[in-house]
Design a protein around this nucleic acid. Sequence first.
DNA 1: ATTTCTCTTGTAAATGTTTTCAATTTTGAT
DNA 2: ATCAAAATTGAAAACATTTACAAGAGAAAT
Lengths: 333, 333
Amino acid sequence: MIDNKNTKVTIYDVASEADVSLATVSRVLNYPDKVKPATRERVLEAINKLGYRPNAIARGLASRKSTTVALIVPDVSRASVAEMINGVIDIARKYDYTVILKVTNSEVEVEDEIWQEVFASQVDGIIYLNDELQEHNIKQIMETTVPVVLCNVREEGNLIPSVSIDFEAAFYEATKSFIDKGKKDILFVSTRSAYSVNTLKERGYKKAMEEVGLEPNIVRTSGRLVVNYPFFLDYLKTNKPEAAIVVRDSIAVSMINAASELGINVPNELEIIAFQNTKYSKMSRPTLTSIDNPIYDIGAVSMRLLTKLMNNEPIDNVNVVLPHNIIWRKSTT
Amino acid sequence: MIDNKNTKVTIYDVASEADVSLATVSRVLNYPDKVKPATRERVLEAINKLGYRPNAIARGLASRKSTTVALIVPDVSRASVAEMINGVIDIARKYDYTVILKVTNSEVEVEDEIWQEVFASQVDGIIYLNDELQEHNIKQIMETTVPVVLCNVREEGNLIPSVSIDFEAAFYEATKSFIDKGKKDILFVSTRSAYSVNTLKERGYKKAMEEVGLEPNIVRTSGRLVVNYPFFLDYLKTNKPEAAIVVRDSIAVSMINAASELGINVPNELEIIAFQNTKYSKMSRPTLTSIDNPIYDIGAVSMRLLTKLMNNEPIDNVNVVLPHNIIWRKSTT
DNA sequence: ATTTCTCTTGTAAATGTTTTCAATTTTGAT
DNA sequence: ATCAAAATTGAAAACATTTACAAGAGAAAT
């Protein structure tokens, strides 16, 4: 039962009810073993009787800790972002942190404002998801006094704590799997905007291709359905790649649908490996082979890492690399 | 440029820099026109020079307002929930509210804890999305002293402010459209768990059916892909409905895929209307006719309504009904 | 019995704002 | 030039906690 009476009961009320000083009440809340069991019991009873809940704001002011973290993301409606948020929130809850959600919409000015707001709100830590991490973002973060964890992104210098898979290795493996099957004409489908993460994916693809003397073939489209579907319809009319590696599931679905529209059989005439292993990959027909990016875990581990940083716990490695995994489905033979 | 120096500058620093009292600094921040332009200017300069940002926590304590709202949802990874969150956050930002995100995972004990936490954190308002709203939830909300807005849900009594479409009307129309085409065997596909909203949808369907003397035919499955796909494969082997109304896009996609697997032609042998108009409806083949639930707007309007409630602004109608719309695609003729 | 140490508790300062109230200054009308 | 009213400002209390420090009570050791 929720006990949200109009009359706000403060620590003073509890103190007088239990006939102790407010300091003692505070102690039973924060350091229970510093108070004699008998009085502790009495205070606990008073708390219960009055339905006392400590005011988190006053607490934050006095202790100079807010037990609040900010989660900064570009957009919640991307399936992968949403799943990551679930991971962050579950762990935050376990460690009694409140999470403030901030959405940048990938707009630079908004992003700057948000960092300002976040500092004003006195958060104890920040989890930052930004596909398009730029040099100036990194500089900003380095100047920050509260701990920051980069989520699902890596930064070359390994200067900032981060949690992600090894993108380069994952795409290298995917490409290699096609090469090992004897494919020569392997297309890499990426996005136009400069996602720093897509650069890593691209690097893995290129490495595998160049290693065996094949010419990389990269094509760029949009993440938006209304753009990429017509694009593929057009592209596949004149180009017949044997295989394709695609940076996102949703884009791969458009490619499959376009191929099917043009009578190109997937996987017999065109094999596809996508990335992220979202619901889309199970819902498309044929189902989609996809590199599994354990995004819930990435969120969860990021939050756990952040708690360690906030409490100055010793950390063996602040750049966590989680294992990836290719899930084979019907878009490959 | 983010200015997050180690040295925390307080209102006192600004006051002495500008050679005024801290009260004056506070006033230029909160009631600028209550201070003489000249001194206001001086204070603003000092603020700028020192990079002062008022401490939101101290502010919250002194003013007894946190300018924070809690957004309570069952699960962020549902496409519709994520889109709604975007709406809430965009408007919250516009009105300078911070949003705390809480996820219940539809677990009752967690839900209770979360309400407790939310009160402890002194939020000024709550946006509550709960598909499975029960009688006791409503009672809880009624006892609450901070304003609450129900988002994407309606509650029969209209006792609590809410924003949603008219579910009953939407499903009545969808059903009617099949009836008008001469369909007799119209299936309603719902979920097993007692979503209060699905009850409303069902009511609209039943009303249309019974109005013309047709027997309602309702089948219940799960929202989970691994359950509902085999379910449809099995169901459609022995049952051949002419048309189906489905409570969620994702479930409809499974139905389409199962039909296609069994060689049942959609829409010629089976027409389908789904609900929500998510990305899924554009990505499935055939594309899915779907009732558009303007979920981003629902989030945005909910937040706007909440700001009014928090500021005690006069409100004409606290139960907002947004227009819906059927988007016709290839799963119907 | 005395001394020392530990345990338990209370007092009061500190946290960084907002806001009330009163004092002072400015303005406008005469 | 005078007075009332209005505008501007500052002093201090309030907000609900945590925490440093000190004091007092028992316990243990001599």
